[in-house]
Nucleic acid binder design. Structure first.
Lengths: 232, 232
DNA sequence: ATGCCCTGTAACACTCCTGTCACATTTCCG
DNA sequence: CGGAAATGTGACAGGAGTGTTACAGGGCAT
């Protein structure tokens, strides 16, 4: 991917914003941010981001207001917007769509979930961004369609398995610790036994290695797992 | 590496802090330190370090408070922070992320583990520091991939062996005492026989010196070991 | 409510790592 | 040359780490 979309984050809670920035940068996005509605509006006009992640509750100017103002301006009229709303405020969702948000995500959210939505919206708005695929040694992950293929044959993976494989495929060869994999596949701040990763890896392996296909998941004893070529 | 990152250590226990300083300096970092939250905050503003290692429990001002204050200030808003938390305090980890820590390490920790995290965070923040390989005289350690290569051929090393070789390769020519090597490869505070290092070195040697390759690990009688060119 | 699938955890088996010991070899020094 | 100290080497028992299977709880669609 040569093009690096600039994502603008309007979120007032510093911690949330930083985590988000981190995850988005990991994903390969450029990131700009503001912590209140007013400055968000200004900075957006300057920087012309490719997409806006907009918290519903913002000081100075509410998300809905920001949204409306953006839609009223010719330059920003078509800026894709993803709303962050608190759980239970379903009404907000409705109003969000009314004022022109392209999608919404309920807090608390999984980073990977939000990233998936971002890609979806970007694809929708910019068809020239061909659908994102991860590929390695005959394994293809179609992120848009959530499909897994090995050597042309489709593989059935559950959501969690798909996310874990996705993390591994994002950087072939690189070894991920179990903790990192939990962060990437389950979400930052989720606490699970390390062994859970082992079991999930096993499930992926047995789904992936049909027939006599070589096992491409390398176990690095004492450290973690990676996707790799023919480890003897 | 021409650029020497300045690491700021905020840790109240003097012994811990000194060991940490030593290990970080070994790694080639510059180090500044404070033993309470308040002075840490002041010194950080003066010295503008590249990264902060922040103990969770600090006198005067807790780690979480320091973190929050730093995030609230424009100059220090993006300072990468690694939290040190006690084992079992999982809640702290969550709160750590909430207030914007970039990573966390659980005490007691492996010096090499912390150093790895520091590099990871620095790389994330400063992509130009993409240095994930150690190389010397045909030996290549790929830290990200956890692979060892000599003259193009892959070598199988166990975790411990890998860590020990890594310590040696981090500063070619430098002689490490057995105690230092135990700190670096096994972890600070681990007690082992010095002879264990000898055995581990032997294992590395026999894995590395396939064929008639020269032995690059030099034994310094009465002192320790180092990686060095062709010692006859 | 019912049944199915997903999932996290526990339990057990098994591999291979690993720290230590005992003995061989080398080095140093008088 | 002798002896002691340091290091090399091979063997081994115990254990940590991982593979594997089973299962119970929960979500979701019917």
């Amino acid at each position: 991917m040569t093009f690096k979309p600039l994502i603008f984050v309007a979120e007032d809670e510093v911690g949330q914003a930083e985590i988000l920035r981190y995850n988005l940068e990991q994903e390969g996005f450029k990131v700009a941010a503001a912590n209140n509605g007013l400055s968000a509006l200004e900075k957006i006009k300057e920087q012309q981001p490719d997409l806006l992640v907009l918290d519903w509750m913002l000081p100075e100017m509410s998300g809905i207001e920001v949204c409306r103002k953006l839609r009223a301006n010719d330059e920003t009229k078509r800026l894709p917007i993803i709303m962050l709303t608190a759980r239970g405020e379903e009404d907000d969702r409705l109003r969000g769509f009314e004022v022109g948000a392209d999608d919404y995500v309920v807090k608390p959210y999984l980073a990977s979930e939000l990233i998936a939505r971002i890609w979806a919206v970007l694809r929708r708005t910019r068809p020239e961004l061909e659908e994102e695929k991860l590929e390695f040694e005959g394994i293809v992950l179609d992120l848009a369609q959530h499909k897994t293929i090995r050597d042309g044959e489709q593989i059935e993976l559950s959501t969690t398995e798909f996310r874990l494989l996705r993390a591994l495929l994002s950087r072939p060869g690189r070894v991920f610790s179990r903790a990192q994999l939990i962060d990437l596949a389950w979400g930052t701040g989720i606490f699970l036994e390390d062994r859970t990763v082992d079991v999930c890896v096993r499930r992926i392996r047995s789904a992936l290695n049909v027939g006599d296909k070589p096992d491409l998941i390398r176990t690095v004893r004492g450290t973690g797992y990676s996707i790799d070529k023919a480890n003897k």
